[in-house]
Simulated assay, not measured.
Amino acid sequence: MDNQDEHFIDEETLFVASQIFKALSEPTRIRILHLLNKKECSVNEIAKELGLQQSTVSHQLRLLKNLRLVKFRRQGKAVYYSPEDNHVMNLLEQTLKHARHD
């Protein structure tokens, strides 16, 4: 592999990375991901804790799930959400830490 190949980013990787940053650019999604990074929650728990409509939470979770940022598990009729991958969660938490820094 020559030096030029080491710096090449394929189009699919670029697209996925840009979609992740786009998802993280919306405050409601940041709030949801931050909460899920602390504990696993159902849609109802997220809505109640963040003061959001259930439909809003469901819509945002669908987008986050499609980007593989959250995963879910069923327990009876309840569905619980948690982070899918710690890489993005670490990026989010470091960004929040940076934003809070004086």
Rank of each mutant, 00 (worst) to 15 (best):
M1W: 09
D2V: 15
D2R: 15
D2T: 15
N3V: 15
Q4P: 10
Q4F: 14
Q4V: 14
D5A: 15
E6N: 15
E6P: 11
E6K: 15
H7W: 14
F8H: 15
I9K: 12
I9L: 12
D10N: 12
E12D: 07
E12A: 06
L14T: 04
F15K: 05
F15I: 00
V16C: 03
V16G: 00
A17T: 11
S18E: 05
Q19R: 10
Q19P: 05
Q19N: 06
K22S: 09
K22Y: 12
A23P: 09
A23Y: 10
A23L: 08
L24P: 11
S25I: 03
S25L: 03
P27V: 02
P27Q: 08
T28S: 06
R29Q: 09
I30Y: 00
I30F: 00
I30H: 01
R31A: 11
R31G: 04
R31Y: 01
I32A: 01
H34Y: 10
L35W: 02
L35T: 03
L35N: 04
L35H: 06
K39R: 13
E40D: 02
E40C: 00
C41K: 02
C41I: 08
S42E: 06
S42G: 04
V43L: 07
N44I: 05
N44T: 09
N44Y: 07
I46N: 06
I46W: 07
K48S: 02
K48D: 02
E49Y: 08
L50A: 04
L52K: 04
L52R: 03
Q54V: 08
S55V: 04
S55C: 00
T56I: 06
V57I: 05
S58C: 03
H59I: 08
Q60H: 14
Q60A: 13
Q60Y: 12
L61G: 05
L61K: 06
L61H: 11
R62A: 12
L63M: 11
L64T: 10
K65L: 09
K65V: 11
N66T: 06
L67F: 11
R68V: 07
L69E: 12
K71E: 12
K71H: 12
K71Y: 13
K71S: 09
F72K: 09
F72T: 10
R73Q: 12
Q75Y: 05
Q75V: 04
Q75H: 09
G76C: 01
K77A: 01
K77Y: 02
K77D: 01
A78Q: 05
V79R: 13
Y80M: 03
Y80V: 00
Y81P: 01
Y81I: 00
S82M: 02
S82R: 00
P83Q: 07
P83G: 01
E84R: 11
D85P: 05
N86F: 09
N86G: 05
N86S: 09
H87K: 14
H87D: 12
H87I: 13
H87P: 08
H87G: 10
V88I: 13
V88P: 07
V88D: 01
N90P: 04
L92K: 07
L92N: 07
Q94R: 15
Q94P: 08
K97A: 15
K97W: 13
H98R: 14
A99I: 13
A99H: 13
A99G: 05
A99E: 14
A99F: 13
H101D: 15
H101E: 15
H101I: 13
